[in-house]
Design a protein around this nucleic acid. Structure first.
Length: 450
DNA sequence: GGACCTTTGAAGGTC
DNA sequence: GACCTTCAAAGGTCC
């Protein structure tokens, strides 16, 4: 069976930064030795980065690591080198890293941009008056660099699911304390994150990778070596990038990883139909039982998820919001407002997450993950009014009820328009008539042409 | 307790 | 190749 990651990535063109070529490099240059490179080596290199990060903070010296900016991408992908970008920690980048075009990304970058703030430091784009108070740009997003041109040419955009009628955002405005927080961000500049107290039990050895993210998951070397260990950007995939709790664990020992890998390899082999060495006497019932016990290896986080993980806490504090749906919409806008280079950092991080995930779980596939997942989200769209009500309201918003399907229309049903879904925005002053509604709405495309 | 909401992106399946 | 579906995170809400 071909490798799920490399095959799909190569066939689909990859997700970022010209990964098609990169994957090709990965496969072509892999003489076996590099591909067998163990994760503990990676983690050791992370440790060196940690050490360097701490020293850099004192001396201001650039990362003296193995990699320099090269026009050739192969070192990054093919050999999984400790990338200087791994020093991108707590809101500042510590070294240049290569881009597909061979160029170097000058770093550090302005943190106002990283935070989705205007370069001038104005608070106008904060959620109370900026993020949500302005209509989304015609071009909602900055696609990954590898597809930027094509998407721009296509004029693709995503329609927001949470409309804010009248260009106003109904959530509480920036509180005084949060104004201070916001101001402190601007004041602290590119090291703003280090002022955010970490809630993680980070060892002193890893303290160079401070994390602003709260977590309830105590991370220890023992937990890493347990069966409960699962891939997460916060657990080992982060390369110490400061994007979440998973990115800042103390490196597990070699024994831990050996044990972990071997157990997982066996687990995954069984889960994927077994190996020639599997005992044929194993009953299907036992197999199913074991399967249910297998830890769920989650997908590596994509660029936006990494961005959300990093920025969520700030948005929550800034907007005094807790509803993730609303927060995610804010983050979605901020994501689109990010500069191309800023986004590229997250695409780079996401790529590394996937690379590490591939190395840790070479037999993992999203397909198997879906089949064996604990939950199955997002029921298929049904024709019942209740479900469509949620869909239409969420999809089009209360100010675009003319686009609701007939069952959802307030004129054709007795369903209350306001109330019910707590996440929905307040009813507009003058609801649009539910005219020209015929049948159910078409399945919404992810993007719409403008 | 679990589905749902919301966001973007990755991956895999289908046609 | 286009399109569709699911799942990653997150926490409030609803059933």
């Amino acid at each position: 069976m071909p490798h799920a990651h490399s095959s799909s990535a190569a066939s689909s063109g990859g997700d970022d930064l010209g990964s098609t070529d990169e994957i090709k490099v990965f496969k072509d240059e892999g003489d076996g030795e590099d591909e067998k490179r163990s994760s503990e080596n990676l983690l050791e290199e992370k440790s060196s980065l940690i050490d360097w990060t701490e020293s850099e903070e004192k001396s201001g010296e650039p990362y003296p690591g193995k990699l320099s900016v090269k026009s050739d991408l192969s070192p990054v992908f093919g050999k999984f080198e400790p990338h200087p970008a791994a020093g991108f920690n707590m809101g500042y980048l510590v070294a240049p890293y290569p881009y597909p075009n061979g160029g170097a990304h000058p770093l550090p970058v302005a943190m106002t941009g990283k935070m989705g703030l205007p370069a001038g430091g104005s608070l106008s784009l904060f959620c109370p008056g900026g993020d949500l108070g302005q209509p989304p740009p015609a071009h909602m997003g900055i696609p990954p660099p590898y597809q930027l041109d094509s998407k721009l040419a296509a004029g693709l955009a995503r329609t927001p699911m949470y409309p804010f009628p009248g260009g106003t955002y109904p959530y509480p405005m920036l509180s005084p304390e949060m104004s201070q927080v916001a101001a402190s961000w601007l004041t602290y500049g590119h090291h703003f994150d280090r002022h955010t107290p970490s809630m993680y039990p980070i060892s002193s050895a890893a303290s160079g990778f401070r994390s602003p993210y709260p977590t309830s998951l105590p991370i220890s070397s023992s937990s890493l070596s347990s069966e409960l260990y699962r891939f997460s950007p916060t657990l080992g995939g982060g390369l110490g990038l400061g994007l979440g709790p998973a990115l800042v664990p103390p490196p597990p020992s070699k024994a831990d990883l050996d044990s972990h890998h071997s157990r997982y390899a066996r687990s995954l082999e069984k889960g994927n139909g077994g190996t020639p060495n599997d005992k044929p006497s194993e009953s299907s019932a036992n197999s199913n039982k074991e399967q249910t016990k297998k830890p769920h290896i989650k997908k590596p986080l994509n660029a936006f998820m990494l961005y959300m993980k990093e920025m969520r806490a700030k948005v929550v504090a800034e907007c005094t919001l807790k509803e993730s749906a609303a927060i995610n919409q804010i983050l979605g806008r901020r994501w689109h407002a990010l500069g191309r280079e800023e986004q590229a950092k997250y695409y780079e991080l996401a790529r590394r997450e996937r690379q590490l995930h591939m190395q840790l779980y070479p037999d993992w596939s999203s397909r198997a993950n879906t089949q064996r997942g604990k939950k199955r989200k997002r029921k298929q769209e049904t024709t019942d009014g209740g479900n469509n009500l949620k869909k239409c309201r969420a999809r089009f918003g209360l100010d675009q009820q003319n686009q609701w399907c007939k069952p959802c229309s307030p004129e054709s049903s007795s369903v209350m328009v306001s109330g019910g879904l707590g996440l929905l925005r307040p009813e507009p002053a003058t609801p649009l008539p539910a005219a020209s509604l015929v049948g159910s709405p078409p399945r919404e495309p992810t993007y719409v042409n403008l």
